[in-house]
Amino acid sequence: MNSYLHAMGITEWQPKSAQITEGLWLLSDNSAEVSLEHPLVQEVLKLLHVNSSDCRIASSDIAAKIAPSNVLWDMRVEPQSGRLRSQPLPLLCQSVQGKRDLWQQIWQQQAQQQQ
């Protein structure tokens, strides 16, 4: 994606046929920093009743190709899509307020599922 357009919040047009529409995705600026085995990631997936084997991690360079409805959790510096949005995982682990915001989103997801 063009960094100039990204800085303005404009996403490039992608034909639907090029979009990834399978699986659940966790987005990260640097996918090496995120692991499905991380305790916080495991706890969030457990609370959402999602099996980690159903999830994949993608870095920002392929995030634009993933259909927004398939993004479970966006952990990029500037999250743009996903059912959950938070700070990047290393920052989230150190931020009490970030964790509170994430748990609030999880609670809202659970409330919507019960309706």
Rank of each mutant, 00 (worst) to 15 (best):
I66S: 01
C55E: 14
A67T: 07
V77Y: 08
A67V: 14
D29A: 13
Q112V: 05
R83S: 06
H49T: 10
D29W: 13
S69R: 04
E78Q: 13
L26N: 01
A64M: 07
E33Y: 04
V34H: 00
A18K: 02
D29P: 07
V34E: 03
D61T: 09
G9A: 04
P90C: 05
P15N: 05
S3L: 03
M1R: 02
C55Y: 08
I20H: 00
L47R: 11
L72K: 03
R56E: 05
A7N: 13
P15A: 05
I10W: 11
Q94A: 12
L91R: 14
A67L: 15
G82K: 01
Q113L: 13
K99F: 00
W13A: 12
N2K: 03
W73T: 01
A111S: 08
A111G: 03
S3Y: 12
A63D: 01
A64C: 11
R76V: 06
G82E: 09
R85K: 04
V44N: 09
G98H: 09
Q19C: 15
V50I: 11
V71T: 06
V96R: 14
S95T: 04
W25K: 00
E33V: 11
H38N: 06
Q108D: 06
D61W: 07
Q110Y: 03
S69T: 14
A18Y: 05
N70G: 12
Q94H: 12
Q42P: 07
H6M: 10
H6R: 09
S69C: 13
D61I: 13
K16Y: 13
A63F: 09
L72T: 06
K65Q: 15
D74V: 07
V50N: 10
K65G: 10
M75D: 14
A67D: 04
K46E: 09
D54H: 03
G98L: 13
S81M: 05
I62R: 08
Q19I: 15
R56A: 04
N70T: 15
I66M: 01
K65M: 15
L92E: 00
W107L: 04
L27A: 09
L24Q: 01
L89T: 13
T11D: 15
V50E: 11
D29L: 10
Q87M: 14
S86Q: 10
V71G: 00
V77K: 03
A64Y: 07
Q115K: 11
L36Q: 08
W25C: 00
L84W: 08
W13V: 15
L26E: 03
A32R: 13
Q114M: 04
E43H: 12
R76P: 07
E33S: 05
E33T: 12
V71R: 02
W73V: 02
S31K: 11
K46I: 06
D74E: 12
V44S: 08
L47Q: 06
E78N: 12
P39Q: 07
L5Y: 08
E37Y: 06
H38V: 06
E78M: 14
W73H: 10
Q108K: 14
Q113E: 12
Q80C: 05
G23W: 15
S28I: 07
D29T: 15
R56F: 08
L89M: 09
H6W: 12
Q110S: 01
L40F: 01
L89I: 10
I57P: 03
T11V: 15
I57E: 09
A32K: 14
N51V: 05
G98D: 00
D74R: 02
Q109M: 06
Q114H: 11
Q80D: 14
Q80Y: 09
K99W: 04
